[in-house]
Design a binder for these strands. Structure first.
Lengths: 110, 110
DNA sequence: TTGCCATACCTAAGATTCTTATGTATATTT
DNA sequence: AAATATACATAAGAATCTTAGGTATGGCAA
């Protein structure tokens, strides 16, 4: 992506949001989805994603389930009930975050 | 602020943008301005700000000038000519960043 | 007049979050 | 046969911040 450091701190809410909208996803799918939603400009690295998924599961925000498709392992993640609450809160923070950015950068839509 | 880690990586473009719009500012003023632009929600810590200002100056993006007001030192910063080019580029990155967030979080303004 | 808050600068240690590099394995395409 | 895509994973190090301190001046309230 253009400037990776802009996205520092934003990966966690992205993952939570995608799982809220798509019910269940596996890691590799998340990286593809983000690429697709940003015209190939935002590339989530696996070195960031997989440890994050593990810690979200450890926190009880996500739960996982393994499946085999075409003889390849997939680890599907979905939000737990607690994760759904976290998701609502996280979404509120993000909308506020974007509003703040628009204020600071004088980008308020007319 | 609500979730500080969201703002990781965003401080540098904020400082550059404010200096582009305000011609010259001192550190403490920057923290107040950001607070004011975000209804008190975003608080830049001095431990992040001052080292950043120093490194931006070392990079040749900013230049500084000291003044005494009411017997208190102020260090005013402004963009160098090179800083102005950096500012344009940085602004482009931020607008793209916000667009990507709106895509990912499904927040496109109607 | 003493203590507290605001202004105004600064640094250092540590936490958090990422990148980069590497590893394993299977399936498909060239 | 080799490269590319899929799909998981970890570890070392870089980048960016928070937290916690420090120095100093000025104004206000107890």
């Amino acid at each position: 992506m253009n400037n990776p450091s802009l996205y520092k701190g934003i990966l966690r809410p992205i993952v939570i949001r995608l799982l809220e909208e798509n019910k269940k996803m596996y890691g590799f799918e998340i990286t593809r989805e983000v690429k697709s939603l940003t015209a190939g400009r935002v590339k989530i690295t696996e070195g960031a994603l997989y440890p994050l998924l593990h810690s979200l599961e450890a926190e009880g925000v996500l739960e996982s389930e393994q499946q085999f498709v075409d003889n390849r392992m997939r680890k599907y993640y979905k939000l737990t009930p607690r994760g759904k609450k976290v998701s609502e809160h996280s979404f509120g923070e993000i909308t506020e975050f974007i509003t703040h950015l628009q204020n600071i950068f004088n980008l308020k839509p007319a």
